[in-house]
């Protein structure tokens, strides 16, 4: 359980997207989480960050929070839809084992970003989470604030085909939607990114309108599907090759299992699959097969990770 910091009861309303992020960072830091940086690869959701997928495995305690830029090529709308983006931010918290007061901690984070608990209606509505690509599932809720889903709250039961012992509590905030609600903005592109009073005020649109257009065009119409298909196969092969290496590194004579490099290839394959999906070259039947292939990689990476020290491996457990 993370050490308890002093409660942050922020009553002033935040004024920008980044202020909401900063407040979340400060809040979770005060609750004992390691504030990590985004993973440096294209992922579909914050869950893909190894700090969640891999670290939710094994017996070692963990507490981390981070922003993760996430890409969902099929959701691209050229920056025109008020709520849909192919690139957006998730805020992710993962604590293992899940502390008994996780719900209260979570509600504290809402207060920290300016949600007045006395005026709003917060509800925990059943929503079971499952990721067929990661071979993972958990039970929990979507959290509603005045009828709007503001977060996903999940107790991980299985990841990469492994039962989670202890169980991690995962919180995922869809940052744009949550911030739009708190800031009272109707179109994501109109949302102030930095303080509107600053000398150089920037809106979300100033930063992302153009990129949304560029990527939407590339995702839907231009991405070279042959190259992507090849990359998918290559990532798959590389993942298998990495994991097939001997555990003892012949050069250093140390036990080095390359779970993370292998998992990078799994992430890559997953993103390429999403791109291929957006290009519309994957049929309904093939879809299941591709998802199954990524899941196989994820499971193998999970198998490898629990053989590492971070995954709880000790010489005793090997014996």
């Amino acid at each position: 359980m993370p050490p308890k910091g002093k409660d942050m009861t922020q009553t002033t309303a935040p004024r920008s997207f980044q202020e909401i992020i900063l407040r979340l960072q400060t809040y979770w830091a005060s609750k004992g989480c390691a504030i990590l940086q985004p993973y440096d690869m294209e992922v579909g959701a914050g869950t893909f960050h190894p700090a969640t997928t891999l670290r939710s495995l094994g017996s070692k305690p963990w507490a981390a929070a981070y922003v993760q830029p996430s890409r969902r090529p099929t959701d691209g709308r050229y920056g025109e839809n008020p709520n849909r983006l192919q690139h957006y931010y998730q805020y992710q918290v993962l604590i293992k084992p899940s502390p008994p007061e996780l719900q209260e901690l979570y509600l504290g984070s809402l207060q920290a970003i300016g949600v007045d608990m006395e005026l709003h209606d917060i509800r925990f509505v059943e929503d079971d989470w499952e990721s067929p690509t990661l071979g993972a599932w958990g039970l929990g809720w979507e959290v509603w604030c005045d009828g709007m889903e503001v977060s996903q709250f999940t107790y991980f039961q299985q990841v990469g085909g492994h039962d989670c012992h202890p169980v991690s509590g995962e919180l995922t905030y869809g940052l744009e939607r949550l911030a739009m609600y708190i800031l009272g903005v109707d179109h994501v592109m109109d949302m102030p990114f930095n303080d509107p009073q600053s000398p150089q005020p920037l809106s979300y649109g100033d930063i992302f309108k153009q990129t949304e257009e560029e990527y939407a065009r590339w995702n839907f119409d231009v991405a070279n599907t042959e190259v992507l298909l090849r990359h998918f196969e290559e990532a798959e092969a590389e993942c298998a090759s990495i994991l097939s290496q001997e555990h003892i590194d012949p050069k250093t004579n140390k036990r080095i299992i390359m779970a993370h490099p292998a998992y990078d290839q799994c992430i890559k394959a997953s993103h390429i699959f999403n791109l291929l999906d957006a290009r519309g070259v994957i049929s309904v039947t093939e879809r299941q097969a591709y998802i199954g292939r990524v899941r196989t990689l994820a499971k193998q990476c999970a198998d490898a990770f629990v053989q590492t020290e971070a995954g709880g491996f000790t010489n005793e457990s090997a014996a």
């Binding site: 899940s98 502390p99 039970l139 107790y155 039961q157 012992h165 202890p166 169980v167």
Partner: peptide, 13 residues
């Protein structure tokens, strides 16, 4: 489901 470090099962903690 299970939660925390325990093995008891309930619908939610």
């Amino acid at each position: 489901m299970r939660w925390g470090a325990g093995s008891l099962r309930w619908v939610r903690p």
